[in-house]
Each structure stands twice: as structure tokens, then as C-alpha cells.
């Protein structure tokens, strides 16, 4: 299992579009991708759960990947969040 803490920087936080971009990008990976936020873990491949987490701009989230391609999945996820989730 690998993980990294990153800061959400896009203006809107995890709204519909950023959540869609994120889940679409991590879904192809075999590994589980979870988002740790506010003491809870959310399925990173689920738009609904990402939105339900109510992650705002400036929030620090932990991306946790677990599986055969966990390194690649984490690298992709971190890059996405740091680049502002396509916003």
C-alpha cells in the first residue's frame, strides 16, 4: 500500500466535474484508490462518493492506493490533484 497527502487547489473543490475527471482517471487501474479525508475513507473511483466527501479548495486529502499497480495509480492521482483536476 502506498499513500500521499496532497492539497486540493482547484477553485471549486471536488464538485461534479473535478470528481468525474478524477474517478475516470483512476478507474483503469487495478488497484483500489481511496481518499482519506476528515477521518473517513472514500472510494476514489466513485464520482458519488468523491462528491459526498465534500472536499473544498484548500483541503488536504490522503490518496491511498493498494494493488498491483499502486505506484502508478498514486502517481497519476497525485499529478491530477496537483494540476487542479482539469479546472
Amino acid at each position: 500500500m502506498v499513500s500521499k497527502v496532497v492539497k486540493v487547489t482547484n477553485e471549486q473543490g471536488m464538485h461534479m466535474r473535478p470528481a468525474t475527471v478524477f474517478s475516470a482517471a483512476v478507474t483503469p487501474f487495478e488497484s483500489d484508490v481511496k481518499i482519506g479525508f476528515n477521518g473517513m475513507q472514500y472510494d476514489g473511483k466513485s464520482v458519488m462518493m468523491l462528491m459526498a466527501a465534500c472536499i473544498k479548495c484548500g483541503a488536504e486529502i490522503e490518496i491511498i492506493c493498494n494493488g498491483s499497480d499502486e505506484e502508478a495509480a498514486l502517481a497519476k492521482a497525485v499529478e491530477l490533484v496537483e494540476s487542479g483536476l482539469g479546472d
Partner: peptide, 16 residues
């Protein structure tokens, strides 16, 4: 049209 596209994204979601 994004409203309807949002509906599609939601129904395609594994948790739905």
C-alpha cells in the same frame, strides 16, 4: 447540457 451529462456520469458510477 452538462446537467444531463452529469446524470450519465452518476449512473455510470460503480456505487450507483
Amino acid at each position: 447540457a452538462e446537467i444531463m451529462e452529469g446524470h450519465l456520469a452518476m449512473i455510470n458510477d460503480p456505487t450507483m
